[in-house]
Design a protein around this nucleic acid. Structure first.
Lengths: 111, 111
DNA sequence: CGGGATCCTCGTTGATACTG
DNA sequence: CAGTATCAACGAGGATCCCG
């Protein structure tokens, strides 16, 4: 384990928390991890209660952060496919651990 | 890996995301994980830019979720000690994985 | 189909003052 | 010391409409 920087506000841990602690990022990453390559509409179907705006903007940010690939085909109608990058895939074991922990302790936390 | 519930909005994964995706929870858990037992003021010193209100309310919620212990001594002035519960400790490896991943890919994401 | 642009709301967070 | 109470602000998020 590293040592957390005493100048907390600017440390890498904060950065990653800020990036991941929004409402949809982890859910999108988890969905892509499960299903592999997915189109915009498929993601929307898998996460029915996300708004178009949030789906778009979250995907955009994940792409900027190099966690997902965005592949666009010049067709009509357009087709866009999303998938995890190598970096994104390497992140998933950590997410899986959280998920497994959550499943294990779900009743404790909720009940 | 489990299968994410198609009724996404109510699945356990969502629940844990909702619990952890606030600004301070993971930071507090990580700080307690590093330092062991800590008093309110020590936590505040370790995370200088958190407000008293957010520190109090986040600690309260973490305690309700059984991730941390709160031990209060009937002294004057009062003394309160916080520490991770067993459940809380079991959660930390997942956090550590995220942190290590973050440290490894920090420049990719920020740059 | 896969978004972008707008507008709006509501919840989280922060600052400040106060207390047992 | 370890909080609570109150108020104010800000921004993430949602609804809707529009477009190539």
């Amino acid at each position: 384990m590293h040592t957390l920087d005493p100048l907390y506000p600017t440390c890498p841990i904060r950065n990653i928390i800020n990036r991941m602690s929004d409402k949809w990022s982890l859910l999108i990453l988890g969905t892509l991890n499960q299903n592999g390559i997915m189109r915009y509409k498929e993601l929307n179907a898998a996460i029915p209660d996300i708004s178009q705006k949030m789906l778009s903007s979250t995907l955009k940010r994940l792409e900027e952060d190099k966690l997902i690939n965005r592949k666009m085909y010049a067709e009509i109608p357009p087709r866009v496919e999303y998938s995890l990058t190598k970096t994104g895939k390497e992140f998933m074991p950590a997410v899986d651990m959280m998920v497994n922990w959550a499943l294990e302790h779900f009743d404790e936390i909720v009940g």
